[in-house]
């Protein structure tokens, strides 16, 4: 119920942050918005002796378009920064569309993109749409930096491939051929509920034919999951309602849901089937929404 005692650092540079993280090793925890870290600490699931905050790293807050690179979203951009971003509203409204479905206003005003990724819960709402849009992440560590496809970051529930001294600095959405994308979340109430299942779809449609599709499912596996069989099935086919329904069925077969107190695995499979079909239809008909 109460936060344990800890030492607190808020460095001014990424280098310093990485250095602190590597210096304190397992004793340290990086904190961004704190909406996951502080909750875990209060619930005694986490007891770091040192918190390293990245709140002073102004350069991680940007959302901008870099020609040749794509849309760059800083890891410290808050959910509401996505919701109110003019750039995203113009290019990929499906990203603010997903951010809007998260949590409550208070949490959207403090939770960040980087935190949502690295917290790595299967029900996280941002990764599906970002992965559907082929996002990569840039990672800086004490020993250097690297870039990675976002979908390769996740290794299991609550785990990623990041080393403890590595920091995600930005998420990059490359320029793309996808003509539409959307994320549909199914929670048990209209706001402030985690996804029981969610599906993000991105489609490249030309003349009524599905040239390419990416389908990413949340809360139905250990990590955000691509429905690759469904994607392959769709490729090159003429778009019909039956086709999309069939893709939904394939996605439902691919997902790996569990029973928990929110819903049964069987029901989650049904949701995946329904929302794959619906999100594909929406992305096909309405573009990036």
């Amino acid at each position: 119920m109460y936060l344990p005692d800890f030492e607190y650092f808020a460095p001014d540079s990424i280098g310093e942050a990485c250095q602190l993280l590597s210096q304190f090793g397992a004793k340290a925890k990086l904190i961004s918005g704190g909406t996951d870290v502080l909750v875990k600490m209060k619930n005694e699931l986490l007891a770091p002796e040192v918190l390293v905050s990245i709140k002073n790293l102004e350069e991680l807050k940007k959302i901008e378009y870099v020609p040749g690179k794509g849309v760059v979203i800083g890891a410290r951009a808050k959910h509401n920064d996505l919701v109110y971003s003019e750039l995203l509203a113009k290019r990929y409204p499906s990203i603010p569309g997903a951010a809007k479905q998260m949590a409550h206003n208070q949490i959207r005003n403090s939770g960040t993109v980087g935190g949502n990724i690295v917290n790595a819960v299967p029900s996280a709402d941002l990764p599906p749409i970002l992965i559907a849009l082929s996002a990569t992440v840039h990672i800086v560590g004490a020993k250097g930096s690297r870039s990675l496809a976002l979908e390769d970051v996740f290794t299991g529930p609550n785990t990623t491939c990041l080393a403890p001294d590595e920091i995600i600095t930005e998420v990059i959405i490359p320029d793309q051929k996808m003509t539409g994308s959307t994320y549909m979340k199914f929670g048990l109430r209209a706001a402030g509920a985690l996804a029981v299942a969610g599906v993000a779809a991105a489609v490249w449609v030309e003349n009524g034919v599905m040239k390419d599709a990416r389908i990413v499912m949340s809360a139905v596996g250990p990590t955000p999951m691509r429905a690759k069989k469904a994607e392959d099935f769709l490729k090159g086919k003429k778009i019909t309602d039956e086709l999309l329904a069939e893709a939904g069925k394939k996605a439902a077969e691919e997902c790996k849901p569990i029973d928990d107190y929110r819903a049964s695995a069987e029901y989650r499979r049904n949701l995946v089937s329904v929302f794959t079909k619906r999100s594909l239809r929406k992305a096909i008909d309405e573009g990036h929404v």
């Binding site: 048990l188 109430r189 209209a190 706001a191 402030g192 509920a193 107190y261």
Partner: peptide, 16 residues
């Protein structure tokens, strides 16, 4: 109890 919190025990919101 597995959902003994405001986040776990879902009471309707104004939107519901």
């Amino acid at each position: 109890i597995v959902n003994g919190s405001m986040g776990g025990y879902l009471m309707p919101t104004a939107l519901d």
